[in-house]
Amino acid sequence: MKFIALIYSAPDAGPAPNTPEFGAFMAGYGAATETYKKDGVMLAGEGLQGTDTATTVRVRNGKVETMDGPFAETKEQLGGFYLFDCTDLDAAIRYAAMIPTAEHGSVEVRPVMNY
């Protein structure tokens, strides 16, 4: 069963770059990714550039409209994701809990729709 883990955090939360804490934080991501690969559950996983680099696209009356930045301001922003293939929600929760951002932000686990 496929689950996506959507990683959210506030821009100012978590360890700041160029600190020892940030090094440990990133090492945590490395360790988590290794575990996912070793357990054979990792389908994909990426980190995203900040929302200040985002472009929002809408099509209205056939016309493409683009907007600088995210469509809606939210305190916690999507910063990355993993796509898992694992047995059930318990397993997905266990893998999601290994994501270092879960310690200051939040990870939303959703089953992928089966067409």
Binding site: M1, F3, T87, D88, L89, D90, A92, R94, P111
Partner: peptide
């Protein structure tokens, strides 16, 4: 039904 909640007695770590 949709969230992937298993129909089991959970494993010891859960």
């Amino acid at each position: 039904s949709l969230a992937g909640i298993g129909f089991e007695i959970p494993a010891p770590d859960h």
